[in-house]
Amino acid sequence: MKIIECPRDAWQGHHPFIPTDNKIAYLNQLLKVGFDTIDFGSFVSPKLMPQVSDTAEIVEKLDISQTATKLLAIVANERGAREACQFTPISYIGYPFSISETFQLRNTNATIEASFKNVSRIAELCPKYSKEVVIYISMGFGNPYGDTWSPEIVLHWIERLSGLGIATFSLADTVGLAHDEDIHSLFSQLIPAFPELEFGAHFHTIPQTWEQKIKTAYNAGCRRFDGALLGYGGCPMAQNDLVGNMPTERLVEFSQKNERQIAINLKELEVARQMFLQLITE
Rank of each mutant, 00 (worst) to 15 (best):
E152C: 07
Y145Q: 13
L155W: 11
L186Q: 02
L197C: 02
Q208E: 12
G140V: 04
N107L: 01
Y129N: 13
E132W: 04
P207S: 03
T174Q: 01
N118D: 15
N118E: 15
E196N: 06
Y136M: 06
F203T: 01
T148C: 11
Y145C: 11
E211H: 15
Y92W: 15
K128N: 13
F97V: 05
G94C: 03
L186K: 05
R160E: 10
V133K: 00
G165Q: 08
I90K: 03
E198K: 10
K131F: 05
H204E: 02
Y145E: 13
A114W: 11
E181D: 15
W210H: 15
T108Q: 04
L177K: 01
S91Q: 14
S138I: 09
P151G: 07
T111S: 15
W210V: 15
L164V: 08
I112R: 12
I112V: 12
P127F: 11
T102Q: 13
Y145I: 05
L177A: 07
A172D: 06
W149P: 00
L190C: 10
P127G: 13
L155D: 15
Q208S: 14
V119C: 09
H204N: 00
I153H: 06
I166D: 01
S120W: 11
P96D: 00
Y95P: 02
S91L: 12
W149A: 09
L161H: 05
L155N: 06
I166K: 01
S130I: 13
G142N: 13
I153S: 00
P151M: 07
N107K: 02
I214E: 09
P144Q: 03
G200I: 04
S188M: 12
I93E: 06
S170C: 05
H156T: 12
A123C: 03
W210E: 15
F103R: 01
D182P: 02
I191V: 13
I122C: 07
F187G: 04
V134E: 01
I99V: 07
T209A: 09
A167G: 11
F187N: 08
I93D: 08
I191E: 03
E196L: 06
T88S: 14
T108G: 03
E181P: 07
E211Y: 15
R106C: 05
V134C: 03
A193G: 10
A172E: 10
T174E: 09
I158Q: 04
Y95T: 01
S170Y: 08
S150E: 13
G146Q: 03
G165T: 05
F169E: 00
P192A: 07
I112N: 07
L105W: 12
T216E: 14
K128M: 10
G142F: 07
W210G: 14
R106N: 01
E196G: 02
G176S: 12
Q212S: 15
E113S: 08
F203H: 04
I158R: 00
I183G: 04
N107Y: 03
G146W: 00
S115T: 06
S100M: 10
Y129F: 14
P192M: 08
I93W: 03
A114G: 11
F97H: 04
E113W: 15
G146P: 04
F87Q: 08
F97G: 00
S130Y: 12
